[in-house]
């Protein structure tokens, strides 16, 4: 039996005010959260452009590529924003920066911030080297570097006829009446090339000039940054 103990009463005005406060706090905070979610910028478009541009640059048929992941230094020097724009048009003109190692190859308009994708590339510089070898009795010479082509200039002395040129045993040039002048030979860069000249008469140093491209590659990182 209750002896009249005071009990806590939930009074109706207090309840109404409490519900009002709770509802308004919930609505306001949901509005703030929705604003935060919809304005969250994860930059998917920037990342997509940067990844595709990087893929395009290193592909085997890219604007500066020699083979996949190997870029030619000469063509990189000629690359700029307008050349890139012709090859890879990007809608809405974001700012693109391509850096090879520490050099900025393309940087127009100036891009800072944004998304960066990095790829490993090898930059290849090639220059031509020329040798005029002395010949032994077998009239053969080995090209010191593996290369995929060479230009030879045949200038046999009087009384000597060069009738056949063999590359590693295969006949590449043949003329029974005699060969002279400049020729370009296609070689394989996967094997060492041995040139052999067959014909009548001796060959001396200076009769044959062999020019071949020598390439050096060094590995760097290419960073493609897209902003906006």
């Amino acid at each position: 039996m209750n002896a009249g103990l005071p009990r806590a009463q939930a009074s109706l005005p207090a309840l109404a005010i409490a519900l009002l406060i709770l509802t308004s706090v919930t609505v306001l905070s949901l509005a703030v959260a929705d604003g935060a979610l919809s304005s969250a910028d994860r930059a998917p478009a920037e990342r997509h452009v940067a990844a595709s541009l990087a893929d395009r640059m290193i592909a085997a048929n890219g604007p500066t590529a020699v083979r996949r992941n190997v870029l030619s230094a000469d063509r990189l020097e000629r690359l700029n924003a307008s050349v890139l724009g012709e090859i890879y048009p990007v809608a809405a003109e974001p700012a693109v920066r391509i850096s090879i190692g520490d050099d900025r190859v393309v940087n127009e308009p100036a891009a800072d911030g944004g998304t960066t994708i990095r790829r490993i590339v090898a930059v290849r510089r090639s220059h031509n080297r020329s040798i005029t070898p002395a010949f032994g009795p077998n009239k053969a010479v080995t090209i010191p570097r593996r290369t995929n082509l060479s230009r030879i200039d045949l200038d046999p002395p009087n009384g000597t006829t060069i009738r056949t040129v063999r590359v590693s045993g295969r006949v590449v040039l043949r003329n029974p009446a005699g060969l002279a002048g400049k020729y370009t030979l296609d070689l394989s860069r996967f094997e060492t090339t041995r040139l052999r000249f067959e014909g009548s008469g001796p060959l001396h140093a200076g009769n044959v000039t062999i020019e071949y491209p020598v390439a050096e590659t060094h590995r760097t990182t290419m960073a493609v940054t897209v902003d906006g």
């Binding site: 806590a8 009074s11 207090a14 309840l15 409490a18 706090v25 919930t26 905070s29």
Partner: peptide, 19 residues
């Protein structure tokens, strides 16, 4: 005794949860 309306406690807990 001073009565704290129970609803005030409930709304405080509810607001903390929602926030």
């Amino acid at each position: 005794r001073g009565q704290l309306p129970l609803s005030l406690l409930e709304v405080a807990v509810g607001v903390v949860l929602v926030l």
